[in-house]
Simulated assay, not measured.
Amino acid sequence: MANEVIVAYKGFDKDLKCRDFQYEVGKEYVHEGEVKACNEGFHCCEYPLDVFGYYPPAGARFAVIEASGKVDRESDKLACEKIGIKAEIGLPGIIKAAIDFTFSRAKKADGDQSKDERGAASSTGDWGAASSTGDYGAASSTGYQGAASSTGDYGAASSTGDYGAASSTGNRGAASSTGNRGAASSTGDYGAASSTGDYGAASSTGDWGAASSTGDWGAAMASGYEGKVMGTDGNALFLVERNEDHEIIDVWAGVVGKDGIKPNVWYSLKDGRPVEI
């Protein structure tokens, strides 16, 4: 047990609730009584992607928080006496936070590749490549036409330059592409792919995965079991419906803003129809 102030991250349901407790951005809360991880107190995660173990990327909301007072750590989470909800951040924000966290703590690797857990790889030049293969790792490519790949579970890959690509293949991983004409791909279960640049594409092929496209004229596709997609006006959405044997039973394509498809709303395919999640 310790008294300290910690910047951490927390997941919530769509209503910004956790364990039926209603939170609000900008508010602070105090727990009365014992503080014990997995039992009593407000819970959060110091490593951003650990929140995916409790709230999958699709449909959840995430915030950066400040934990203080009595703090008790266990495994991948901590319980605290006081919590302040500082700011809500979307999926790209969680991915960026994971990369910043990893780079601030990772050992320096030779070249642009890291194989250690929580390792970090960065490529900042044009046409560069960065690869992270350990669990909880992070790969970042910021140059024009660069590529970032994370293959371990709970990993993060970010590409911020135009025409860049980010790929996450581990379970509960996340890939983000913020440059124009970029691509983000997530193939692991419970993974997430986010494309925020114009003409971008996000693809999620793992089960219970999520893909979002929020730039202009982009596209998002989810082809795994119970996958989800979301986009802003004018973006194309693609969904595949599978049965419990993972056989394809239906497909759907649409454009946000047409035929009742709403912007910034998650959709999944049920009985051949897109359903709000």
Rank of each mutant, 00 (worst) to 15 (best):
171 N>W: 08
192 A>K: 02
121 A>F: 00
174 A>R: 05
216 D>H: 04
208 W>R: 06
156 A>E: 00
2 A>D: 02
45 C>P: 06
150 S>L: 00
264 N>K: 11
105 R>C: 02
180 N>V: 10
176 S>H: 12
165 A>I: 14
54 Y>R: 14
152 G>D: 01
166 A>Q: 09
53 G>C: 04
15 D>V: 14
229 V>M: 09
27 K>Q: 15
8 A>H: 07
194 S>Q: 05
213 S>I: 08
142 T>M: 08
182 G>L: 13
126 D>T: 00
167 S>G: 11
136 Y>C: 06
24 E>D: 08
90 G>K: 02
258 K>Y: 05
246 H>V: 12
168 S>T: 05
25 V>R: 05
221 M>K: 13
213 S>Y: 11
263 P>L: 02
200 G>Y: 11
189 D>P: 10
6 I>L: 14
102 T>L: 04
61 R>W: 10
175 A>E: 02
113 Q>Y: 08
149 S>T: 15
152 G>Q: 08
273 R>D: 06
196 T>H: 13
44 C>V: 06
216 D>R: 13
50 D>N: 15
263 P>W: 00
232 T>P: 04
13 D>V: 11
137 G>I: 00
179 G>W: 07
261 I>K: 02
33 G>D: 03
136 Y>N: 12
110 D>M: 04
80 C>Y: 02
243 N>W: 00
41 G>A: 01
119 G>P: 12
85 I>M: 09
139 A>S: 15
157 A>S: 15
210 A>Q: 01
195 S>E: 01
6 I>A: 12
